[in-house]
């Protein structure tokens, strides 16, 4: 098999797997939340309620796809697509095992950061195109939030790059065969995870959505599959951030006994579990507090982390 064909096969499989996993996330999240909340959760459709996501999707397909007459039609339609596409593109550089990867670009990390930043366009444009005040507030909140959290995220990642000496994600994984970077970079690990939660717009940083304040924030006016695309985007974001945490800090596919792909999946699911757990437990920040946390706490901390890493590396050399 030629390398090009292999990449294509992997790419298609990855896409299918991701979409399947996104659907599965509906079940995972609903069941897990139910367990945290003394409930049973969906358990009627199929064994253990496993077919619930399918039922949910059929329901979403059947919903009336209503477009507000006051909306900016073109942008309104494109916006949800942008979110999903950018996140899916970012997956291209994530190495699952040395063999299962689509692109091993030498600027993989930059590509990930770039695509993550692109995602916010989808939200801001959705908020803008809806031409509704609640959506607009949600959209502006999202823009400010993403901006504030991408800086600490980027700076935290720079320390990892310094340790690994490469922007290529497979090199970063290979730099931590035994000792994971979450041990060498505990602060960076925490900052990246927090920023990742904010990136995925999850509690306690779900301000763009903020159901009790803004009804549904940026996707208030959306319905049917366009609405579902936002949810796909959110779930894909969770999976992406979890995968990146695994790659950058948890040693990627490295681990004893079990096959590499399995290790990767186990680690990734552990982070996904953390995401759902946090959602079940925490209240939401207020807009200004979110900003304070991003700019006044996380950003300085990530700079300190960067400087400390550099200093230690200098001394070690």
């Amino acid at each position: 098999m030629t390398p090009g064909l292999w990449t294509l096969v992997i790419g298609v499989c990855l896409l299918a797997g991701l979409l399947g996993l996104t659907t599965g996330m509906i079940w995972i999240e609903r069941r897990l939340l139910a367990q945290f909340q003394d409930r049973l959760g969906p358990n009627r459709v199929g064994p253990l309620g496993l077919f619930q996501p399918i039922a949910d999707i059929i329901k979403l397909f059947m919903k009336e796809d209503w477009m507000p007459p006051f909306a900016d039609k073109l942008i309104f339609v494109i916006a949800p697509g942008i979110i999903v596409v950018t996140v899916l593109l970012a997956f291209a550089v994530v190495p699952i095992t040395p063999f299962i990867k689509v692109s091993d670009a030498n600027v993989g990390l930059l590509f990930f950061l770039g695509m993550a930043s692109m995602g916010v366009y989808g939200i801001v444009l959705a908020g803008w195109a809806s031409n509704s005040k609640y959506s607009l507030i949600g959209g502006t909140r999202a823009a400010a939030q993403m901006l504030s959290y991408e800086l600490p995220m980027g700076l935290a990642v720079v320390s990892v790059v310094m340790l690994a000496g490469s922007l290529r994600l497979s090199d970063i994984v290979n730099a931590q065969p035994r000792l994971w970077f979450c041990v060498l970079q505990p602060l960076g690990f925490v900052i990246f995870t927090i920023a990742g939660i904010a990136e995925a717009r999850r509690t306690p940083f779900d301000l763009p959505e903020a159901d009790s304040e803004l009804i549904a924030g940026y996707h208030t006016e959306y319905s049917s599959m366009k609405f579902a695309l936002f949810f796909m985007g959110e779930y894909l974001d969770i999976i992406l951030v979890s995968a990146m945490v695994t790659v950058l800090y948890l040693g990627g596919w490295h681990g004893p006994l079990l096959p590499p792909a399995l290790w990767f999946i186990i680690k990734m699911f552990a982070v996904i579990f953390l995401f759902v757990w946090v959602r079940a437990v925490l209240p939401r920040y207020r807009y200004d507090q979110l900003m304070t946390l991003g700019w006044k706490i996380l950003l300085p901390l990530s700079i300190v982390n960067l400087v400390a890493t550099g200093a230690v590396m200098l001394v070690m050399r």
Partner: peptide, 16 residues
């Protein structure tokens, strides 16, 4: 009140 503040679980506990 907790759910107004974005904490989604307490409402289930208290209604229970």
């Amino acid at each position: 009140f907790a759910s107004d503040l974005g904490a989604m679980s307490p409402v289930f506990f208290t209604f229970n």
